[in-house]
Amino acid sequence: MESLSAISGMRSTPSIPQLDLFGIGGTQRAYGIETSPEIDVVLGRAAPVFIGVSGGRDSMALAYRVSDHLQEVGHAGPRFLIHSDLGRVEWRESLPVCERLASRLGIELIVVRRQAGDMMDRWLNRWKNNVARYKVLECVKLILPWSTPTSRFCSGELKGQVLASAMRKRFPTGDVVSAVGIRRDESSSRAKMPVWKQDYRTMRKRGVGHTWNPILGWTRQEVNAYIKSKGDQLHPAYTIYGSSRVSCSYCIMSSLNDLVAAASCSDNEAIYREMVDLEIESTFSFQGNRWLGDVAPALLDADTKGRLAEAKERAAARQAAEAHLAEHLLFKKGWPTAMPSEHEAHTIAWVRREVASAVGLTVQFTDADTVMQRYAELMASAREKASVGGFELEEA
């Protein structure tokens, strides 16, 4: 059978045979790296290489293996480790792990941060903006403050965009390579990722951006063994607290076990309480039906526990009211796409009054007549904007 590498045009570089010291199987190619003709060409042209590091195990393995590969192929261009600091939601040891890694490899570490604030600031500001939009009927349902698995602006804005901006500024012209430590066995979506693709975020008029995923085929066991073979240690989140991942200490993608692990670290207590306070204020749980406040109630005082219980009741009231909105009234591309009927306008007005009462908001457009007037304004504005550039409201 023709191999996946042959089918896709990608290649895996051979590596020196090793003893099976870490239980990864003697017949399996040890620590192979996947590449592509496009990557080989730009490396041969000495393109700068940015190796993304988070402090997590995959990025550690990536940094060691890519550094070795660049030496093996005689790469003559500059290389960097690059880390996006997410602020107070980060595990405190993440940046020190990245700094140690840079020191061991003898590679400059570039640390970038979102200028408009960290991840928690982004959630807080999103809630503030979404409340403002709801008050003036720019969205028909109140929108949560948190990122979600289908709306991961957290990684897009605070990692991808910030990292790409730093790369463009450092090298305004010429090709750049961004090496990323994702693996196929992490998820079904990552299993479909290519070894190479053009990166629109780092494209410039006189330079092409390249995303390179060189350890796609590695297993977690290989990652752990490879880091051990390099004489390095994993992040304390794994070794001391038992987390399976290192990203935000409390991540929207975390399992219950990982959330409990994060809460067991005293460094994460302050941000835990701040996030629970936002759950209470907004009436939106951090993860779908899982309230972060239920993960480590011992970290909350009696007053906060009481307010959390009330927030859950207020959330139920909000959800019950919004359930009365007809499907065709909810957000979709081009919203609003139709004027509500008089009956629907009465329903929208009633829902707004109920939601405002449950969440503790003061809102406009709480009767049928003003709702109809507001929809007419929104639709006229949407038509005007579409005619000049296609801007539209988003439920985001």
Rank of each mutant, 00 (worst) to 15 (best):
P172H: 09
D258S: 11
V295N: 03
F331I: 01
L158G: 07
H346K: 01
V53Y: 08
F365L: 05
T370E: 06
D303G: 10
A321W: 12
I280R: 12
G242W: 00
A261R: 12
W212P: 00
A225T: 08
Q71Y: 08
V260T: 11
R201G: 01
R273I: 08
E342L: 04
S155K: 14
A262Y: 14
V42P: 09
G23I: 06
L95P: 02
I227T: 05
G156H: 15
L101K: 10
A46T: 09
H75R: 02
E354K: 14
N213C: 15
A323K: 11
R65V: 08
L234Y: 06
P194N: 04
E322T: 02
V140Q: 05
D294T: 05
A311F: 08
G156W: 14
L393W: 13
L378C: 07
S247A: 12
E384V: 05
T219V: 07
G389E: 06
S103A: 15
A262L: 12
L19C: 06
I107Q: 14
F331R: 00
K159E: 09
S381A: 10
A302D: 15
M253K: 07
G52V: 12
D258C: 11
Q18T: 10
A63G: 15
L105P: 06
S155V: 12
E72D: 11
L292F: 10
M193P: 01
Y200W: 01
P17Q: 01
Y64R: 01
Q373K: 00
V42A: 02
R245H: 12
Y375P: 07
S254L: 09
R220T: 10
E392L: 07
I280W: 13
G207A: 04
S94V: 06
Q161M: 12
D20E: 06
M119I: 12
L142I: 10
I82D: 02
S5D: 09
V97D: 03
V260W: 00
G25K: 05
A191D: 09
A76L: 11
M119Y: 14
S282K: 01
V388E: 10
D294C: 03
D369Q: 11
R45F: 00
V195D: 01
E274K: 13
E342P: 00
V223G: 00
E344H: 11
R190W: 08
W291R: 02
E313H: 08
R201K: 05
G32H: 07
A237F: 05
D40H: 13
I227C: 10
F365R: 02
A47N: 11
R92C: 01
G26V: 10
E342R: 01
V208Q: 04
V260K: 11
S188R: 14
S247V: 15
V42H: 02
S282G: 04
D40G: 02
A6W: 15
D367V: 08
T173E: 10
I271K: 04
A179C: 07
R11Y: 08
R11K: 12
L21A: 08
A386E: 09
H343Q: 04
S54F: 11
V388G: 00
K128V: 04
S266T: 09
S341F: 13
R100P: 04
C251W: 14
R190Y: 14
M120F: 15
Q18R: 14
